[in-house]
Amino acid sequence: MQKSLNIDPGKCTGCLQCEMACSYEHTGTFNPSRSYIKVFTFHHEGRFAPYTCTQCDEAWCMRACPVDAISVDMATGAKVVSDDKCVGCKVCTIACPFGTINYSQATGKVVKCDLCGGDPQCAAACPTDAITYVDADWTGYDRMLASAAKSLPSAEATAG
């Protein structure tokens, strides 16, 4: 079974526990500036949006890489950067339509979410379930359910 990160921005409070967990897993430091997941704050709208790689099946970054530094982790489906092969050319950062693979000055390589080998620490750290790790076939089902619930006669009583 393949699993996928499922992000619900409406539940995010902008606490950055995910950024600390991610950076701690990958660098051994609490350091949001080196996190592979980013939470954006839209102050005037009062919204927070966690953003990271969705692990496209046909990944633009992987296709664009001239040195085959990005490969599929067969256990998790994550697209993983090999630091041994990456030359830091950044072509993948141009190819990715979502901007979720990024260059790191600290290492001279590109960095991206690798799903922590199947135990994503961002999801584990999220206090509000804004980030969950679910069966890949079930992404979006919670919103489908919420939408379906609106058709119930008692919708007014339960919505919002």
Binding site: T13, G14, C15, L16, Q17, E45, G46, F48, P127, T128
Partner: peptide, 19 residues
């Protein structure tokens, strides 16, 4: 009340974001 918002690292998130 638009939403609740957290300070850094806070898993309570009592902050009020309003219009």
């Amino acid at each position: 009340l638009t939403t609740n918002g957290a300070c850094f690292g806070c898993t309570i998130a009592c902050g009020r974001i309003s219009t």
